[in-house]
């Protein structure tokens, strides 16, 4: 009998992944409300559908669910934008606080409170530029890059989480790395 994850284990797991999950979502959708919704949806789905799975299965399950939730969001957005263009007057406008990396940059420059000790001002600026470049990648490339290199999944696991072949994971990853290199070079970013 495999040991199933207890409530404490699930809680610990979610705590350990929530910040990164939020970052995944924000790079993909660039809207903090939507990103929080996505993370919450994914967490709830994991708890409801797989809350009784062994703890060691949770990380992969969660990545898969998170990526699916992000893709669902894209689809809803697509229909929605067609909708808005049809009759924009009716659409309520409370969710247009777009994530703008330039704001982040400006904020960190003008901040009256001192920056977090673990990241210098220069680092923050570089991070903002990287996040900007990541946000500009095609969705599949960004997904592959983040899963493969940030989450440290191997190509097989990344393919499973993305629902594609290992071959396309490799293609997406190498294109992503190249595009990021080009984009950061153009902005004169030197990585420490």
């Amino acid at each position: 009998m495999v040991k199933l994850s207890s409530s404490a284990e699930l809680s610990q797991f979610l705590t350990s992944v929530e910040r990164r999950a939020y970052k995944h979502a924000i790079y993909a959708v660039r809207d903090d409300h939507a990103a929080l919704d996505i993370v919450q949806d994914a967490m709830i789905k994991l708890a409801e559908k797989y809350g009784d799975k062994p703890a060691e299965e949770l990380p992969m399950l969660f990545q898969r669910i998170l990526q699916n939730t992000i893709r669902d969001y894209y689809r809803r957005q697509k229909v929605r934008s067609a909708w808005v263009s049809l009759f924009s007057g009716l659409q309520s406008r409370h969710d247009d606080e777009e994530f703008d990396p330039l704001d982040v940059l400006e904020d960190s420059e003008n901040q009256s409170t001192p920056a977090a000790p673990e990241a210098s001002l220069q680092q923050r600026q570089i991070i903002a530029l990287i996040e900007d470049a990541l946000g500009n990648l095609p969705a599949r490339q960004r997904e592959a890059f983040l899963l493969r290199y940030w989450e440290g999944l191997d190509t097989n696991e990344t393919a499973a989480a993305m629902g594609c072949t290992e071959g396309s994971v490799k293609t997406h990853c190498s294109r992503a790395v190249h595009a990021l290199s080009v984009s950061l070079k153009a902005k004169g970013v030197e990585l420490p």
């Binding site: 559908k49 299965e57 992969m60 399950l61 898969r64 699916n68 669902d72 689809r75 499973a160």
Partner: peptide, 15 residues
């Protein structure tokens, strides 16, 4: 239709 397709195989067989 796409959504229905997705939720049909949303239980990831590999895991």
């Amino acid at each position: 239709a796409r959504k229905a397709e997705d939720s049909g195989n949303s239980a990831p067989p590999a895991f």
